[in-house]
Simulated assay, not measured.
Amino acid sequence: MLADDGLSQIQSGSITKSFFIESASLFKLIEFITDELPRWRDRPERKPVASETVLTSNFCAHMNSATHNSKWDYIQFRTEEPDDVTPGRKIDLVPAPKACVVWIDGKQHYDFDPLLPIECKRLPTPSGAKRDKMEYLHSRHSSTGGVARFKEGHHGASHKLGAMIGFIQEETILPWEKKLSHWTDVLVRAKKIGWLGTDRIVLSKHDTALKLGVLRSCHARTGTLGSIELRHLWVEMH
């Protein structure tokens, strides 16, 4: 019966379909994610939740729908994925190949392999005994600092590009850019190990109508990892 259904060529454990993309295409993928943020936020059926975990999970579900019938239909999104170098660490959101192999600069990526590590943070940081107002950058109380995780190689050690999504729940994009710039200066003046003025996050695109911003930063990393570039995708949730 299998031969009658045209399934006799299937090989157990094999994924044969391949996509060859340039590393620069990851920036296009980030653009796709950015464009979907306001569409997701404004969906009437989306429940108005505040929890970072629920927001990330809901956005992941939206992205898996958005890829359908798009040029990114070979991509899936997953949440709370183990880091591919430090499995004890979990990445908030990752795009990965779906039913195919994706080749980037001669390296194979299977459905097990994240194409891009994405950290998600609420702005402002929720209150709590072990929470830090500067947690988007660095936490004095734990290893939950967003940018710090990338700088220290806890997230994305095998990647040269990463992203962070900022769910802005109070104020707007421009005041947050100023706050994070100030906090970077605070860390530099305090001589926090590894922090430099070059770690500053800079606004590159701002759509006031969509309440959406894209920012950029580049960070030296510990050891022999080399630098990592981050794209910061901020969406005002109110």
Rank of each mutant, 00 (worst) to 15 (best):
1 M>V: 08
2 L>N: 13
5 D>K: 14
6 G>N: 13
8 S>M: 09
9 Q>M: 08
10 I>Y: 15
10 I>C: 15
10 I>F: 15
11 Q>P: 13
11 Q>C: 14
17 K>A: 10
17 K>H: 07
18 S>C: 13
28 K>G: 11
30 I>N: 07
34 T>V: 06
42 D>V: 11
43 R>M: 10
45 E>Y: 12
49 V>N: 04
49 V>Q: 08
50 A>N: 05
52 E>P: 14
60 C>Q: 10
61 A>W: 07
62 H>S: 05
64 N>H: 09
65 S>A: 04
69 N>D: 10
77 F>G: 02
79 T>M: 07
81 E>T: 01
81 E>K: 04
83 D>M: 03
85 V>S: 05
88 G>E: 01
93 L>A: 00
93 L>E: 02
94 V>W: 08
100 C>D: 02
100 C>A: 03
104 I>V: 08
110 Y>D: 01
111 D>Q: 09
111 D>E: 13
114 P>M: 13
119 E>A: 02
122 R>H: 06
127 S>D: 07
127 S>P: 04
127 S>Q: 11
131 R>E: 08
135 E>S: 00
136 Y>C: 01
136 Y>Q: 02
136 Y>G: 02
145 G>Y: 05
145 G>W: 11
146 G>F: 10
148 A>T: 01
151 K>Q: 12
152 E>V: 12
153 G>R: 04
154 H>R: 09
159 H>N: 10
163 A>Q: 05
168 I>A: 05
170 E>W: 06
175 P>S: 04
179 K>P: 10
180 L>G: 02
183 W>C: 00
183 W>Q: 03
184 T>L: 03
185 D>K: 08
186 V>C: 06
187 L>A: 02
187 L>Q: 02
189 R>T: 03
190 A>D: 11
191 K>W: 08
193 I>V: 12
193 I>M: 11
203 L>D: 03
203 L>P: 10
208 T>K: 05
213 G>N: 05
213 G>E: 04
214 V>L: 12
214 V>H: 09
218 C>N: 04
220 A>D: 07
221 R>N: 05
223 G>Y: 14
227 S>K: 09
228 I>H: 01
232 H>F: 00
233 L>N: 02
234 W>C: 01
